[in-house]
Design a protein around this nucleic acid. Structure first.
Lengths: 232, 232
DNA sequence: CCGGATTATTTTGCATTCATTTTTTGGAAG
DNA sequence: CTTCCAAAAAATGAATGCAAAATAATCCGG
């Protein structure tokens, strides 16, 4: 009774973020296709078979092509005029650049996180850190990487900046195809070094030393990049 | 003779970057539409008239809708299921977030620029700086802002990181609709302060003090944000 | 005269269709 | 047997068509 006119021009915020998954068919297709590509279902540099994907997702070419255009804008695929799409393969130089940008964004995340992170959030990151440490001691790569990614993700989330999170997620998706995992196996020293860096990161976060954390995070990513590059 | 089979999978690089402008109709439309929106031809929060734009650009709905999807992915517009697109209006919070992310990216740019910038590039930035100073002395806002943007752009370019440049450009496009210009007029102190900050930026760049420049640039953007916010 | 429901119009989303371009296939000449 | 060229086949880019949803307009009851 208090809202007789549900003003049709009032779509500013009411969209429930929790209901997002089922937003629309296009949105769903986009997510599905992105996953399909990021998961590595298509070979690196391979052409994207339009027709096959239409059958695979049971849709016509129109929505598929729309999704393809978006994915191209995101940098996951590239469009060759009159020749369709192909999985974009990142050159070593591209990967280097991506690592640096992600380093810059994580540095920013660290700084912002120090300004607003709660004790509870720090505690959660500490828990994850210790879990990661256990994996490190047992030399369990898979678990270690999972925790590692989770920690970095949590720092980004703790920054409380949606634009940052979105930008970061976009770049993370593009680099996911690059298997920079499994490289530590050949480089035990790097693994230990990374673990120590994480100790320092956590310490700076606890002290809420923004500038310091920012610096460490960037260098941490730089080191990660160097390690990945060396073993590639 | 050495290449009997022009391997159809070898489209890695030959695409001439200089010939890009006329890449394809879709690409052209995308640029045109983006400009059309960024330039402010559509009111903030207004619905995007699909049909009208089709006539405006003399194309059918299919390519237009593709472009719309891409623009939505870029964050310039938002898609309401079954209700079309509307110009995305940035909340003060969004703007705050954007400024921080751009600050983070410029901080990164400054750091990277210090690693690789040439004397010639520094000299060019210095020239622009002095030109900006002249505009400052004469209180010519328009020219001042032009130089200001050019300097920041040059620092990003000097970083020599295409991913960074692309990411930065994307965010810059989104914020262009926000008129944070003309705010210095009401705040002479901020103007002088900004000018002094630019002196420090240039100094750090000359000394190639990466971490220092990084810090200054981020804070410079923070101050810019505060000034914009205060006068809004 | 106003409010609410019903119908008509417009708009959106997707499928289908058409014109070009590209790629493949076939064949003939060298 | 290779190479070049031509025609067939397939794929791409864009326009049109059609069902469903949303918005606007109309009509009827109070």
């Amino acid at each position: 009774m208090s809202v007789p006119l549900p003003d049709p021009c009032d779509e500013t915020a009411p969209v429930d973020e929790a209901t997002k998954p089922a937003a629309s068919l296009h949105e769903g297709l986009l997510v599905a296709l992105r996953d399909f590509i990021v998961e590595g279902s298509l070979a690196d540099g391979a052409r994207v078979p339009e027709r096959a994907l239409c059958e695979r997702f049971n849709i016509s070419r129109t929505p598929l092509r729309e999704a393809l255009k978006v994915l191209a804008a995101e940098g996951l695929i590239e469009l060759l005029p009159n020749r369709g799409a192909r999985i974009r393969q990142l050159s070593p130089e591209d990967v280097r650049e991506l690592f640096d940008v992600m380093g810059g964004l994580e540095a920013l995340a660290g700084r912002l996180a120090c300004e607003r992170i709660s004790e509870a959030e720090i505690a959660e990151i500490e828990r994850m850190h210790h879990e990661m440490y256990r994996f490190y001691l047992r030399r369990e790569m898979h678990g270690y990487f999972h925790c590692n990614q989770a920690i970095h993700q949590m720092i980004v989330a703790a920054a409380g900046n949606a634009m940052l999170a979105a930008t970061y997620a976009g770049l993370a998706g593009r680099i996911r195809r690059v298997r920079y995992s499994a490289n530590l196996a050949k480089d035990r020293d790097r693994w230990g070094e990374a673990m120590r860096e994480h100790e320092v990161i956590l310490d700076a976060l606890r002290r809420r030393a923004g500038a310091e954390l920012s610096e460490i995070l960037f260098l941490h990513l730089r080191n990660k990049q160097k390690a990945a590059q060396a073993s590639s």
